[in-house]
Nucleic acid binder design. Structure first.
Length: 413
RNA sequence: GUGGGUGUAGCUCAGUUGGUUAGAGCGCCGGAUUGUGGUUCCGGAAGUCGGGGGUUCAAAUCCCCUCACUCACCCCA
């Protein structure tokens, strides 16, 4: 075997590209339908932009290097820092709320595994300048709508949601101090997956407090979380009934989340989460911008593609043509090219062979190219300024005049 | 970074206790008398058996090393 892709990088053959475009289309449509506008930024950024948000530890997970001007740079691992900069630069001029989205390529230097690559595509949707819980619901609804457009409904998906403020409050109630909090949050996050997590929580907090905590995981005391209750009510009004499941185990990795946090999972599948998001009110200020409330989510292509493939919801990626033009005799090649041009100018997707072919072969190639119609250009018909259009599904043929070929409905049948 | 699994044709795989020239299906290319396809039939190309070393009269097969891929852990912005 010769050269292959770097580990965690993928070639997209037409079939895979069709699948990717399928996701893209749903993502763009869902974001646009809710009034989000598309943005983008550079793939390469200064390393500092990322370390400022996440600390120096993440350098190990970045594609970073020095450029020829000796600047430390990195391929972007996420969109949020870029978004924050863009907002900060024009914060005064932007009407609030700012509703932006992007569908872009990201890079993380991690060991590739199921549902995780080093180069991946991610849909990011963010709202800046809106403190209301309706904004959180807006983002969740867009994520759910994107997935709905891909054929996934409430029977397939669960949006598990929690609220960081609520978690802080409960932890404070059992005397978990700030110095312990990060560690405890990490263990809570693991409760669903790691069988050793309850044990370690008990070691850290003692049986009584650990027991109380796991009780919240069994049954989240919503009466003590008014903000989350309000959000759930708005979600109901927004058509998200059946999706949202309050879950104390959803806390999400890093420190900067300040309010609702949520992740979307596939029901009955052992996949990692499809999407995750939350409110990060302090982050834009941390990154040097104005103090604006913000929230958003990211949804990657890797896990989602895996899920859609499992459920048979991906397009097969077979080629599609409206017509394949066949010169019935070698001297008809020039005429065939003229016919193809007329059809293409009429808006049809049309292909034809580069040289003479036997009709038998032409029909075979038409099928293989996914053509709905074969257009046979033969000397007898051409003498009458017409061609034979054959419907490849039904096998029926009809004669069509050359001058009609540019009409948009000529291949309609 | 740690641990497990797998490497044979473009793809999915078979290959017996080590034994002649390593196979199948799909795909690809060509063909089955004149201007009509999908099915079928015939033919063909295609493999340093991941790489290196060792044991043996003989290695795809046994042993060692190495590389790649993959799954999980760590991490998940």
């Amino acid at each position: 075997m010769g050269q292959q892709t770097l580990p965690g990088f993928r070639d997209f053959y037409p079939e895979e590209m069709a699948a990717r475009r399928h996701l893209d289309a749903a993502w763009h449509a869902a974001a646009a339908a809710a009034g989000f506008r598309e943005i983008d930024g550079p793939v390469l950024e200064s390393l500092e932009l990322f370390t400022k948000k996440s600390g120096d530890e993440i350098v190990g997970q970045l594609y970073s290097f020095e450029d020829k001007g000796r600047r430390p740079v990195a391929l972007r691992p996420e969109m949020t820092p870029t978004l924050a900069r863009m907002v900060a630069a024009r914060a005064g001029a932007l009407p609030k709320p700012v509703k932006w989205y992007s569908v872009q390529r990201f890079f993380r230097y991690e060991r590739p595994q199921r549902g995780r690559f080093r180069e991946f595509f991610q849909w990011n949707v963010d709202v800046v300048g809106a403190p209301e819980p309706a904004a959180d619901v807006d983002a969740i609804a867009v994520a759910v709508d994107g997935l709905r457009r891909l054929g996934l409904g409430p029977q397939d998906l669960a949006v598990r949601i929690n609220d960081r403020r609520f978690v802080h409050e409960l932890l404070r109630g059992i005397d978990v101090g700030p110095e312990q909090e990060a560690q405890v949050l990490g263990l809570i996050d693991k409760l669903g997956r790691d069988p050793k997590a309850p044990e370690r929580l008990a070691e850290l907090l003692g049986d009584r407090r650990a027991g109380e905590l796991s009780g919240w995981c069994e049954n989240l005391p919503l009466d003590r979380a008014p903000a989350l209750g309000e959000l759930l009510e708005i979600a109901d009004e927004s058509g998200l009934r059946g999706y949202l499941e309050p879950d104390f185990r959803i806390v999400r990795g890093l420190a900067y989340y300040t309010g609702p946090v949520w992740e979307i999972f596939a029901r009955g599948a052992s996949l990692r989460s499809i999407a995750g998001g939350g409110r990060y009110d302090g982050l834009i200020a941390t990154l040097g911008g104005p103090d604006l409330p913000a929230l958003g989510f990211g949804m990657g292509d890797a896990v989602l593609t895996e899920l859609l493939a499992e459920r048979g919801l991906l397009p097969d990626g077979a080629p599609v043509l409206d017509a394949y033009v066949i010169p019935v005799a070698p001297e008809m090649l020039a005429s065939a090219r003229d016919v193809a041009r007329r059809l293409r100018e009429g808006g049809a997707r049309v292909d034809l062979p580069y040289g003479p072919v036997k009709p038998r072969r032409g029909l075979k190639d038409a099928n293989r190219a996914g053509a709905r119609h074969a257009v046979l250009v033969g000397p007898d018909e051409w003498a009458d300024r017409s061609v034979r259009i054959r419907d490849l599904t039904s096998g029926s043929e009809r004669l069509v005049g050359v001058d009609e070929l540019g009409a948009s409905d000529v291949l309609a049948s």
